[in-house]
Nucleic acid binder design. Structure first.
Lengths: 359, 359
DNA sequence: CTGTTAGCGCTTTCAC
DNA sequence: GTGAAAGCGCTAACAG
């Protein structure tokens, strides 16, 4: 049974309020008193009750991170960065796995664990623009990846189109002419896939290469499995492609595996570029050329945006404390419009396009 | 501003208590009333305030999962399973990354977010037996991996020694005689490494092979990087090993990469076995033979243990209050001692030891 | 079966 | 500078 504020106060011979002041670092406490209180806090191993604090103050210090799957390395690495960035700002992260299921994503939009969560960082997969834009819940939310034009949510992403274009231009610069795209997605899930496909077309055009629809392999998901299957279909073409731009590293890794199964040499027979720069790609054989989004940066930006919103909110909140009877409260909003932040990315050239440097 | 119980009660024309009863699914509410309340709940989009509930009832429905790094695939996959298992039991998971740092792990032991967390599933890395056993905090905790002899904590793990032995016997059965171990760890972090090393020795002995200390490669961590470096050292031996048992898949993947760099054929020149069965190993070239701990099972067992402890706890709590009619069987048995549960594992043979089956 | 009431531990006016 | 008291929203203990 942990100590309460009350007991600390008694032991220190002061009032509850004073202990609270000390614990929360407020000024106007005499050094002597402060020392006594701190001694009592330590002696009793006092820890504030977050539920009580949150009930009272409306803030919990907890943010939710909603991602499709932790087991997908990109999300695992991103989550790691988010957890770290949140920690630096004093927040703990509650992870929600949507598994890319529409219903679970809707739950996120509607506010999981309301009252308990100060804000949400959400990486949607299944939900489209329209649904995202239609969100009701007022908990501050930052969107990762998927951009909502009409919506009112903050958003962090890299320039997917530009990144994809660079990847294709890199392949073209290597002299490849039949450059395939691996990762087109038909369903609503495909925001990222759509952007990368657009960048792929731009890249082809910039390189003076024709767009051939048969060189675009569709997938269901961005997993290794889909990559291997898609690659198998591409290799069955006559003539086959001499390069592949995969829309994720997992797809690319699956593609590499498919090449291995067919004894194709990478990059000699076929060059491969991925997207995400996950750790796996640095150790695969061959190592994977990839578009590297700065995940640390993305996480930090998302946390910054969320932090700002939370501050706005508490600032507003404390002002509107009056007893508000029948709902008239117009409550000045003033909240700045949705912000759209671009995180940096760069192309990392490795063996899957450049070959093995030294042997 | 979300609706409160009060407002729902007014709209439904009943008392607060009745709404609470409906929301919590208690019996003894007339169907008509229930329907009216449910209508009101839906209309006002009422969501219970978890902070208040938790403050009042001492339960929050949140458990913490403390792992070293989400970016390590084994932990990502395990976390995914834990999040899922917890969800099935109505718990949300708050993820804590210790980064394997002693101080952060101590924080876990002392109770992160006290009062807010019903229980903890903890996969320690840096802390040794002694410190774990010395824990004060009373929040129910289940340990993953590391076993505490003296302690009082529940524990779930696979039989690391037996698993390692099987892996080595598999290599020996292939006719390999110079079987190296990759992943010994000197520091306190090494509980798993120690067990697997013990299993390695047992395996050698069972196969009638001599233990050679020069065939044991030490590492700092279980990362790809360490695997590649360790493998490089092993290959410099004269004669080199003809097989490697790596204590983690990440190490094994690093080892595969080191082989690729040296144009060694796997498994012809050297066979490789990993440990963990992460997704990467199923798509690596060659695919990785590995010891597969049943992560779903581990997660479910951990959640079951935690669930039981929580029930014991609340049972005890409410039992302290008098006036419980009904009685019924004592059924008690009070909090059982620490339970130690073994999860299943199996060896999955793939190309890195068996070669490529079909081409 | 339903209503009333008293806090859970904390912050936060308001006095002193 | 410090103390006293009023709730935040909810549940559980009692009546009715």
């Amino acid at each position: 049974m942990p100590a309460r504020l009350q007991e600390v106060a008694i032991r220190a011979g002061v009032s509850i309020k004073t202990v609270s002041n000390v614990v929360n670092g407020y000024a106007h406490v005499s050094p002597a008193t402060r020392a006594r209180v701190e001694e009592a806090v330590a002696a009793l191993d006092y820890r504030p009750n977050l539920s009580a604090r949150s009930l009272r103050g409306g803030r919990s210090g907890i943010i939710a991170l909603a991602v499709p799957e932790l087991a997908v390395p990109y999300f695992a690495e991103l989550s790691q960065s988010v957890v770290r960035a949140a920690g630096l700002r004093g927040f703990t992260v509650l992870v929600d796995q949507t598994e890319g299921l529409p219903d679970r994503e809707r739950l996120v939009l509607e506010g999981i664990r309301p009252h308990l969560i100060d804000g949400v960082i959400f990486s949607p997969l299944a939900l489209g623009q329209d649904e995202l834009a239609r969100r009701q819940d007022r908990t501050p939310m930052v969107l990762l990846g998927e951009r909502v034009e009409a919506g009112s949510m903050d958003h962090v992403a890299i320039d997917n189109v530009a990144a994809a274009r660079e990847a294709v231009l890199h392949l073209a610069a290597l002299g490849r002419t039949r450059i395939a795209a691996l990762g087109a997605i038909r369903s609503a899930k495909g925001e990222n896939a759509r952007l990368r496909l657009a960048g792929y077309r731009e890249g082809l055009e910039a390189a003076g290469l024709p767009f051939r629809s048969e060189l675009v392999a569709e997938v269901r998901d961005f997993h290794r499995h889909d990559g291997a299957a898609g690659m198998a279909r591409l290799m069955a073409l006559e003539p086959p492609p001499d390069a592949v731009f995969a829309f994720s590293d997992l797809l690319a890794l699956g593609a590499l595996r498919a090449c291995y199964d067919r004894d194709l040499r990478v990059p000699e027979d076929i060059a491969v570029v991925g997207f995400d720069d996950i750790e796996d790609g640095r150790y695969s054989a061959p190592s994977l050329t990839t578009v590297s989004p700065d995940k640390e940066h993305i996480a930090r930006l998302a946390m910054d945006l969320l932090g700002t919103r939370l501050e706005e909110r508490t600032a507003k909140g404390s002002g509107a404390l009056e007893g508000t009877p029948a709902g008239g409260g117009s409550g000045g909003l003033g909240s700045a419009g949705p912000r759209d932040v671009l995180a940096p990315h760069r192309l990392i050239v490795r063996e899957s396009t450049a070959g093995r440097g030294k042997r």
